[in-house]
Design a protein around this nucleic acid. Structure first.
Lengths: 209, 209, 209, 209
DNA sequence: GGCTAAGCGAGACGGTACGTCCTGTCTTATA
DNA sequence: TATAAGACAGGACGTACCGTCTCGCTTAGCC
């Protein structure tokens, strides 16, 4: 009776095992068929779990999908500080654009943000787990540059983030124009030129020329 | 059975009357209960029309909701050219922010863009009817300013629009930070400082000081 | 596209076709697996119909099972009047006992009556469609005999039916004692001896001796 | 966490205390909301016990309900022998009818018998604990009367019980006709007239006239 | 001005998902 | 060690919606 391998029967399972299977099944559904296919019914079936369990742990299919996405994508987004804010931000923004365009992740993120508009629980999860932490990293980078004197003292870091990452999200969600690395570079240039200190701007213009 | 009273009976209706009633009922549902409540079933009931008719004219509930929103909101968005690009854009962006924050329109637009992520028909309708025409007006304003010498010649008008309106959409859809007129002003300042020609930038700094 | 034979697609079906398929699937489930297996879910699946349809037409799975049972069992229960009430009733009661014991019908009827104790809709359906009509036939037979002078004038036909069929139902539902044709015969004898007129009782005793 | 207050904690309880609380909670549910509400889940919650315990002691919710019913209704059903079988049986049958009609007991018994049709464990419990012992008392009374010469020697006591109590159960379970004491009296009269010895029948007719 | 068929309302239909409840099994931790 | 507590898989419940399809009525548009 011990260690039968393929667990059967209907009794209680260890919570971790269940969570793992649910998140794996959800991620598969999410990447293969899109957010619309992430329903509690289908996830329950695919993961061999029960709807009761899903309802207990996740407030909505969207929130489950979000968690599955974050769990399945190990994201190493640390900013590497080289001392040149333009270089550092450009590196990060290019990586972000590649993530959105080169993989299914872009579609998934767009669908998650889309669903969050009518799913408060999902919105909360997205904000806490995804957007705020990522924004934090960018903010830190910008404030460091400001302290170094590369950016004006009255610059609003959140505003810069909106003009950089927010503009990319905009092209993701309202795809009237292409999203690519050249666009990311242009964004960085225009944004930093607006936010640069007098000295750093001259440096930028020197580089750009 | 003979006292049918208010019931209109089942015969043919004039197409225009039907469309009008459907769009009115949809708008009511949309503004009162949100996009999730705009289902063909509920619209058919509320408008006294039949699902057959709805499926004939609209590809999805989302597309119907979008049309109802545009039909119910007469939007006068003409840019008034004063010769000062910062003033003109600031006026427009402030009006846009007010629209998003002071009325139910903000929620509706957010829900529509959200639903468009998984509804191609709605995405197409939104782009054609809503985002592209509005973007066009801003682009024209920017290009006029460029020809006037206020903006650099190599400036990308689409990119500026993303940094202005796109940043606002970003705060609408990912509401981690507040969206208000002060934010709009700051956006305009930072964006134009990055895009301004040498002479116009000195003018801007003069104003800003 | 025309006359494809095996109807496919999801549109409306002719009501009669749907009813037929539902009742057939229900009867199969009922006789093969018992009343506990007649759930709206399983019937919907087995019949290729939808739960919506089932809920529209039947108030409970039990009521559906009852109708399926009646529809599938063509019951010819006409009393044949030979002029001898004992013979006629004995014939019928024996047939009834055979039905209850020789086929799955006994189990099904018992389950239906059992479920009717907690399903008012089923109870109503059973009474209207099943028990009352059958009781009516027996009552008619008894009253005919009374008019012929075989039974006392103050005899209560309903009471006799309870003592005959009701006793059989009792052995079906509370199976502490066997139910068979000999029992039916004994029931008839004892009941009619109690209800017989003076003259008919002497006749009965003569036969019975 | 430390202020658990009323909660007893999760440790072991004395078996008797647990049984008592379970049966009390079950009886309350049974009489207040009917057999459908007697589920292991609800009983566990209402009694403060755990499902583990319920599954250990009772094979099905029906069996638990049956035991709770018997435990809560102390039934003194001894036949008092007066020497007149009609009087003794009539007294008992009237009491039985009153029990079924004047209290919630009738509904509960009907639901229990009903559930027994699809719950073998409940059927067994009902037979052992309820129907057989009661039948035994009636049988004894009848056989005593037979020995006294009031009933014919070839009379089948079980059959008489079916015609008396069984007919009442029939009206309880298939309520097409009213169940009351007058009906009980008529049942006794007709049944005993069929089963009476020659001498006792004349006595009965004398009484009845 | 009467006739006819185009087009609509009403809504049934199969299917899928929702969120809840219950069953029977099993795990954990307390007393 | 027996218990409370309750998580777990499974499955039925009853509802809502989608997209398809049928029916019957009415009025618009033609003769």
């Amino acid at each position: 009776m011990s260690e039968t391998g393929a667990r059967r029967g209907r009794g209680r399972r260890p919570a971790e095992e269940v969570r793992t299977r649910v998140l794996a099944a959800t991620a598969t559904l999410l990447f293969d068929e899109g957010l619309r296919s992430v329903t509690f019914d289908r996830v329950a079936h695919a993961s061999g779990s029960s709807k009761t369990t899903l309802y207990k742990w996740w407030p909505s299919p969207g929130a489950l999908a979000a968690e599955a996405y974050f769990a399945s994508s190990v994201q190493t987004l640390e900013f590497h500080d080289t001392g040149d804010v333009r270089h550092d931000i450009r590196t990060q923004l290019r990586a972000f654009v590649r993530l959105l365009t080169d993989s299914r992740a872009g579609t998934v993120i767009a669908e998650l943000i889309g669903a969050a508009q009518t799913d408060p629980e999902l919105a909360r999860a997205l904000s806490t787990t995804y957007t705020l932490p990522r924004r934090r990293l960018a903010i830190d980078c910008i404030e460091l540059a400001r302290e170094r004197g590369q950016l004006r003292h009255d610059v609003d870091a959140d505003l810069l983030v909106d003009q950089l990452w927010g503009a990319c999200y905009n092209r993701l969600l309202i795809p009237d124009n292409p999203l690519n690395e050249a666009y990311a570079d242009a964004l960085v240039d225009n944004t930093l030129r607006g936010a640069a200190s007098e000295t750093y701007r001259q440096e930028l213009d020197g580089h750009g020329a």
